[in-house]
Write a protein that binds this DNA or RNA. Sequence first.
RNA 1: UGAGCGGGUCGGGCAGCCGCGCACAAUCGGUUUGCGCCCUCAGGCUUCAAUUCUGUCCGCGCAAACUGCAGAUUUAUGCCUGCUGGGCAUGACGUACCGAUUGUGUGAGGAAAGUCCGAACUUCAAAGGGCAGGGUGCCGGAUAACGUCCGGAGAGGGCGACCUCUGGAAAGUGCCACAGAAAUUAUACCGCCCGCUGCGAGGCGGGUAAGGGUGAAAUGGUGGUGUAAGAGACCACCGGCGGUCGGGUAACCGAUCGGCCAGGCAAACCCCACCCGAAGCAAGGCCAAAUAGGAGAGGGAUGAGGUGGCCCGCCUACCUCUCGGGUUGGCCGCUUGAGGUGCCAGGUAACUGGCAUCCCAGAUAAAUGGCUGUCUGAGACAGAACUCGGCUUACAGAUCCGCUCAUUGC
RNA 2: UGGGGCGUCGCCAAGCGGUAAGGCAACGGCCUUUGGAGCCGUCAUUCCCAGGUUCGAAUCCUGGCGCCCCAG
Length: 122
Amino acid sequence: MKFERLPGGEKFSRLFEGGSTLVGNWVVVYFRRREEGPVRAGFAAGKKLGGAVFRNRLRRRMREALRTLPDRGRPADLVLLARYTTGEVRFSCLRSEIRSLLDRGGILRRCQRREKGIPSET
RNA sequence: UGAGCGGGUCGGGCAGCCGCGCACAAUCGGUUUGCGCCCUCAGGCUUCAAUUCUGUCCGCGCAAACUGCAGAUUUAUGCCUGCUGGGCAUGACGUACCGAUUGUGUGAGGAAAGUCCGAACUUCAAAGGGCAGGGUGCCGGAUAACGUCCGGAGAGGGCGACCUCUGGAAAGUGCCACAGAAAUUAUACCGCCCGCUGCGAGGCGGGUAAGGGUGAAAUGGUGGUGUAAGAGACCACCGGCGGUCGGGUAACCGAUCGGCCAGGCAAACCCCACCCGAAGCAAGGCCAAAUAGGAGAGGGAUGAGGUGGCCCGCCUACCUCUCGGGUUGGCCGCUUGAGGUGCCAGGUAACUGGCAUCCCAGAUAAAUGGCUGUCUGAGACAGAACUCGGCUUACAGAUCCGCUCAUUGC
RNA sequence: UGGGGCGUCGCCAAGCGGUAAGGCAACGGCCUUUGGAGCCGUCAUUCCCAGGUUCGAAUCCUGGCGCCCCAG
């Protein structure tokens, strides 16, 4: 899935306070649908999770997982928040959980899923 | 071969596919401004003197204002630069900015960390002086500076290579619990000795500090002379202190003479020498947009505030407090630097100088990742945020150089 | 990023060079038919950790570790 950077400032805290929340076992997604534009994504890892190297690694795993999803996103702002378990889980499990969470939030388009869905499901 | 000491280097590599930040180039698309001329404004030059005064009207403009013409002053209304602002002309070319695509280059550390020191840089109604406060502390040097580094001195530890520590206790004040006679104006518990007394045990007066005992520490140590017993009372050596001489830039070392007065703690106050204005890139500057441009109370000229702890000095002209309103985005700062590498020269060294050469992250919710193969096998500590010089702390391993000790062989 | 502060028993804490108060809790006992209340007693081998200064350190110095608060 293609996405742009979510620029900083108030937008992060607005999403944390006013956005919708999807909680998974290994990641939490805050999101808000938009009318137009690309998908904008930010990645966050709290300070209690560990040092800078470990938190960078968590953000990179989430970024890579989101990037390798099939490209059928609807316009939205989203923030992926790392949990303690994000570093322990296998990468393919993390990716499939993010896909199911975005599907539940209505950010993935169903019609394109049927066209392209069969090869990517396997 | 084993044990160890000192110092240096590296911190996964290679290949394939997908992906990210920044810089540059090309192509495409978009945007407005600048580049030309004139005026104003600002600064400068020439000059004895350089934009001053008066009148009038056309044009332009919401307005402030600007400008033209005529005249006055004067030998003369001049020349140059910058481009804040205004006007005219032009959107062809080039340039600038923004976005997309493609290509090329580049992209975390030895500690990037802790924030413990030192600087650079920036700001402050004066950044001045003094006090206070803080820091450093053997000596000499290096350095932009340092609490760092180098060389040396003394003391301590180690068989050794080597490592660790460092002003002043004879300026003053304070503290030294318990124990002990006594913890610094000294003093005497058990003792030792002399005298008097008593049948005796002992008592009284005096001398003494060698021995015992207490303590972390007891007023130099050892041996002798001496004595009633003793004592630096005296002598020798050692140690400490002071004077002189010699060596050394100095710390200090050596020699010699003198006399015996001198407990420890300054990471207790302190003394001496040297250093320190404060705050920090979220410093600070610029642009655009939005909002506000208010109310109340109090103080006041031998007074109020700035000044961050105080005083003097200096500065401001209204000041202080409360309530209310606002505090969003972008750009610069931002990476060429006390810079790296190599050679040469000076210096014991830290380091310095010269020449050549290289450009090596600049993000902004924040760029290095995912998968696969291979190298026996990848597995340490750990992520730039203004930049340097150090220190400290964390660290799987790999590797190089010099040296010491032990054992064996030649 | 910068500034400030704190670590003492299970909890709240005093103590600031001379060998660690106190309260709650816990445990044991007394009292009571039993419980509660009350009374008596017990409870710090390392005062966050490691070095150093000192005869002696929770206290002083240096360096770490952990936690909290503030600015924007």
